[in-house]
Every structure is written in C-alpha cells, then in structure tokens.
Design a protein around this nucleic acid. Structure first.
Lengths: 110, 110
DNA sequence: ATACAATACATAACTTTCTTATGTATATTT
DNA sequence: AAATATACATAAGAAAGTTATGTATTGTAT
C-alpha cells in the first residue's frame, strides 16, 4: 500500500465530511483540499472520486449545480437531507471502526 | 458497510499484529480472538482470512507448522524475519493513515 | 507566441480485497 | 442422535480502489 493510498471504504465518509464542513465543493477542489490539509500525505485520485460523486448523486445523497468559470464548467456538489443523515452515519461508523482498530493494535490488548 | 466489516486493507496489518503478539496462532483462533476482543464488533471472515494467510506464506511473510489435535489438523502460522519487518511497516502505515484520517475528520481542520 | 503546467471534467480496463456461499471432516455438547 | 463448534479450504461475485487515457480551458514561463 502506497502512502498516498486510502484504505478502501474511507473515501465516501471523507467526501461527505468535506461537503458537510464546506457547504459545497467541486471535485477537483476536494482533491486539492485534501492534498493541502494532509501536506501531500493523502491523495484522492480523480479515477476514484468522480465515479463516487456520480454514484452519490444517483443515490440522492448529493445534488449538483454546474457553474461556468469562463468557458470551463465547474460542478458543485452539496449534501441533500438524505445526505446529511448518510454523512452522520458514515462518520460514526468510521470513527467507531478506527476506535476498534486502535484497541486491537495496542500492544497490551492482544 | 456492515458494522462487522473491515475497511479493506486493514486485515493484513491486523493479522501480522496478532501473530507478533501471540508468537503463533492458527486461522480459526484468530477469528475467535478478534471476535472476543472486540465483543463481536469485528468479525474476520474465513473467506477473507485463509486466502490472505496463504498469500502471506507464499510471500515468505509467514511460515506454518501443522499439528494434529486428535485427527483434526491445525495449521499454526508465525512471522518470518521478513514478516517482522513487514509487520512493522504495515502497522506504521496503518497508524499513520488513521492519524491522518482523524485529522481530516476533526471539525476544525477542514 | 508557444509550450508547459494547472484546472476541471470524465471514463475504461484492470487489480485488490473483500463478502457470501459452499464444501469437507472431526469433536463436542445437548 | 442431532445440532453445534472446531478447523480447514475454495470459488463466484461485488466493491472500491489504481492506473491510464482523453478532452478542453486557463494560466504561466521562456
């Protein structure tokens, strides 16, 4: 596993968290934001991100607004009401999982 | 994601950690140990575990000793020297990843 | 002015890593 | 005697990524 790779399943909660905290974002913005915040430690690849965004939109978790910057289209995503619930659920689940893993990885526990 | 499901990629470090802390273990024992330690929160499925153990053995990360309990064979695994290094690497990587995720999931950071 | 890098989207082929289902056999408990 | 637990294994399919590639616009450096 490359240091810039995500453990699979963590991308969705991360995207939902980003949208929750920023109101709305476009895909490319998310990739840059995460790169910046993690000082290059984590890279969201576009090949993973865009299909995920499309799926979340199809599932009614996200809605989009396309804006044009000059002649270049930008697709903003935001959480729907269903998406807000899904965000809470996904984050709780990931946090809970990481708590459990931490417990298992602590030397004295096993 | 079911609560008993692992985020993909975490199983290998977990197995290496178990073997590191217990000297040697057999597959079924690992599934029971994790179930017990996490009070059922995490379940290692045999369909995921056995192929992983075979791969790690093929890669020289683990070695095996088969013992017979009555007429039933039991396959003990332990870390090789290469496996010890791989364990350190995998655990550091997972810990580092979880630290990064925690940072991203904290409200004030994004 | 022109080339290169950055921005911004998208998809397709492939890989990895699981889940679910199934199979076999022995040992233990009810 | 039947059901459950122990203990291994594999195969089909799904999920969720990677890598590669493509298109087009905009900004920057030579």
């Amino acid at each position: 596993m490359n240091k810039s790779n995500l453990y699979k399943g963590c991308l969705e909660p991360l995207v939902l968290k980003l949208l929750n905290d920023n109101g709305r974002m476009y895909g490319y913005e998310m990739t840059q934001k995460v790169k910046e915040l993690t000082v290059g430690e984590l890279t969201i690849t576009e090949g993973a991100l865009y299909p995920l965004l499309h799926r979340l939109e199809a599932d009614g978790i996200l809605t989009t607004e396309v804006e044009s910057i000059g002649n270049r289209p930008r697709k903003y995503y935001k959480l729907t009401e269903k998406g807000e619930k899904q965000k809470s659920h996904a984050l709780e689940e990931l946090q809970n999982f990481m708590r459990t893993m931490q417990l298992l990885l602590h030397p004295q526990t096993i």
